[in-house]
Amino acid sequence: MASPANRSEPVRARNARWRGALAVLEEMRRESGVTRAAVARRLGLTTGSATEITARLRDLALLAETQAATSGRGRPTTVLGPHPEGPLVVAVDIRQEDWRCAVAALDGAPATVEAEAHADRDPAAVIAAIGRAVRRVHDRHGHRVRAVSVAVAATVRSGGVVQAASLGWDAVDLRALTADPRTPLLIGNDATLAGVAEARLGAAAGAVAALHITIEVGIGGTLVVGGRPVDGATGAGGEFGHLPFGDPALRCPCGARGCWDLTVDGRAIARHVGDPPPRDPRTYALEALRRARGEPAVRAAVDRAAEAFGGGLAGLINALDPDIVTLGGLAEPLRAAAEPRFTAALTDGLMRFRRADPPPVVAAVLGEAGALHGAAAAALDHVLTEDGLNAWAAFVGAGR
Results as ranks from 00 to 15, higher is better:
106 L>F: 07
284 Y>F: 14
358 P>C: 01
228 R>I: 03
396 V>E: 12
216 E>K: 07
291 R>E: 13
256 A>I: 07
274 G>V: 02
336 A>L: 15
225 V>G: 01
47 T>E: 14
267 R>V: 10
10 P>Q: 03
318 N>C: 05
39 V>F: 05
225 V>E: 09
180 D>P: 01
188 G>W: 11
172 V>S: 11
8 S>D: 14
379 A>T: 11
388 G>Y: 10
281 P>L: 04
202 G>N: 04
315 G>R: 12
292 A>F: 08
298 V>Y: 04
260 W>E: 06
249 A>Y: 00
218 G>F: 06
353 F>R: 14
384 L>W: 05
394 A>V: 12
6 N>E: 10
24 V>D: 05
215 I>Y: 08
133 A>M: 01
39 V>C: 04
250 L>S: 02
147 A>Y: 09
194 A>T: 12
376 A>C: 09
221 G>I: 02
332 E>W: 14
80 L>Y: 07
375 A>M: 00
54 T>F: 01
81 G>K: 09
119 A>I: 05
179 A>P: 08
217 V>C: 13
40 A>R: 03
395 F>K: 04
25 L>W: 04
258 G>Y: 00
330 L>Y: 10
239 E>T: 09
231 D>R: 13
194 A>I: 10
282 R>Q: 13
196 V>E: 06
363 A>V: 09
238 G>S: 04
381 D>F: 10
118 H>P: 00
323 D>C: 11
135 R>H: 09
239 E>M: 11
185 L>W: 10
181 P>G: 09
235 G>A: 07
25 L>E: 08
388 G>P: 08
327 L>V: 07
121 R>I: 11
237 G>Q: 01
395 F>M: 06
35 T>H: 07
70 T>I: 11
86 G>H: 00
151 A>W: 09
186 L>F: 02
395 F>P: 00
282 R>G: 04
226 G>K: 01
297 A>L: 09
57 L>K: 00
68 A>F: 07
233 A>P: 02
148 V>Y: 04
187 I>C: 12
136 R>I: 03
59 D>R: 15
75 R>S: 13
321 D>M: 00
389 L>G: 09
307 E>W: 06
155 T>N: 06
4 P>V: 01
339 E>C: 07
124 A>C: 03
214 T>E: 13
22 L>W: 10
